[in-house]
Design a protein around this nucleic acid. Structure first.
Lengths: 232, 232
DNA sequence: ATAATTTAGCTAACAATGTTAACTAAAGCA
DNA sequence: TGCTTTAGTTAACATTGTTAGCTAAATTAT
């Protein structure tokens, strides 16, 4: 598929629109990104943007997909130096990368994990695969560690079964993750902790606990891994 | 402080405005609450609302405070039948109440814990005390249980210290919570888990794991309590 | 009771927003 | 060269929050 000159120009314009949108979100904050403001900064009229995105929601969706990919790339890059079987170290590095990306890409994090923009609902068939790219990285490590026999499931999780667990196992099998129910449960809980702590910190809901600090977050990640028998 | 007739009328109008706002948020969804729509439903003109709230943000703040109080009340009511020293049961009941309130008051939950409404920033001096009313309930139980010697701090947390921990201890002392650093840490992590899991569920970020279910959440709460040596 | 004042509401208007319609000029292709 | 597609324009509409200026009612003071 060769790109014609026109297609190339079009693509750079699309990228510029998204870049300007991201910058403006970062500056004047959050969800009130304005097509008109974007157009103005680019020196063109607002309706011209409709040549590139059907409507505002399509633009938002594109930004969300980009954000997911940016996060996923950042997480992948964070484990470059670490041995493939140092599961605890790998997991911790990705946890810290997750938070770091969130802090340095506030608006994009909010775009992904925060309240949907007013009136906007993400089309799952587009955003779900993009989302999976980042959070499956945690799953992957746990799966690898499990297969290598390095994970010990804490007693409080052993023997816990429910219809939901069986269903979860099925869903994960479809994605080639052959993990026992308690481990899936642990993984999801971990995901909840990570996302929850970062969200609390980012939304300022932890402000009355004092200023933000890596230490608390890191300690919690380490504690989580220790519980699974993974050293860092 | 006797209320004059005028003040009473005014108060009922204020309450009606908030009620209509809540209903409309619940119906047509989230953050796009419209002063004009509220006014229209109440059979008055939009500018009339400015007699009751200086601007939209003030209205939002009032809704947030109400939401916090509603949540706090619901949590308080959830433990009516439970013995004062059944700490695990108390904590679990409040956890379940938290999620239940969130599911049945979606928009209000989002208002509190989600991304701030576009352009809106909550004044901390008003919202923080209201927030504390709900989440201190978790703290209170842990504090009571700790003083009763019923909590055993897991090994992975013991001996973890940091400047942040010392600061946290100070902050909590100011609020009359005399808890050791690791316990505070555990409490905050628990808060992260609870809020994180409910958020994930509510924002549909867990949809690819299957439909929502009380079981997963409840199991995670129980596991958390077990880790502290609290039976449910 | 009458006069003064405060309050609750109105309409009109302004500056934004997303979006559509109708049109123009340029680029690419037969 | 002529036809079609594309990128852009301006004008306009229906929304939004908000301010200004006015009216009529309710309360308070004389």
């Amino acid at each position: 598929m060769v790109q014609t000159r026109r297609e190339k120009l079009r693509e750079t314009t699309v990228e510029e629109i998204k870049a300007v949108a991201r910058r403006q979100m970062g500056e004047q904050g959050g969800a009130n990104l304005s097509l008109r403001a974007i157009a103005a900064e680019m020196g063109m009229s607002a309706p011209a943007l409709y040549r590139y995105f059907d409507n505002r929601d399509k633009l938002v969706t594109a930004l969300i997909v980009d954000a997911y990919n940016s996060l996923a790339d950042f997480m992948v890059a964070s484990t470059g130096q670490i041995a493939n079987d140092a599961y605890g170290k790998l997991f911790l590095a990705k946890c810290l990368a997750f938070r770091e990306w969130a802090l340095f890409n506030r608006e994009q994090f909010i775009l992904i994990f925060g309240t949907p923009i007013p009136g906007y609902h993400a089309p799952p068939e587009i955003t779900t695969p993009a989302a999976w790219r980042s959070n499956s990285q945690f799953m992957q490590i746990l799966d690898d560690a499990w297969k290598a026999g390095r994970i010990s499931i804490p007693t409080e999780y052993q023997g816990l079964t429910s219809p939901l667990h069986l269903k979860l196992v099925e869903i994960f099998k479809q994605r080639d993750y052959d993990m026992p129910a308690p481990l899936i449960h642990i993984a999801m809980a971990g995901w909840g902790v990570i996302q929850g702590l970062v969200s609390l910190e980012l939304y300022g809901q932890m402000d009355y606990f004092g200023e933000s600090d890596t230490a608390l977050y890191q300690l919690e990640c380490i504690a989580y891994l220790k519980r699974l028998g993974l050293e860092t």
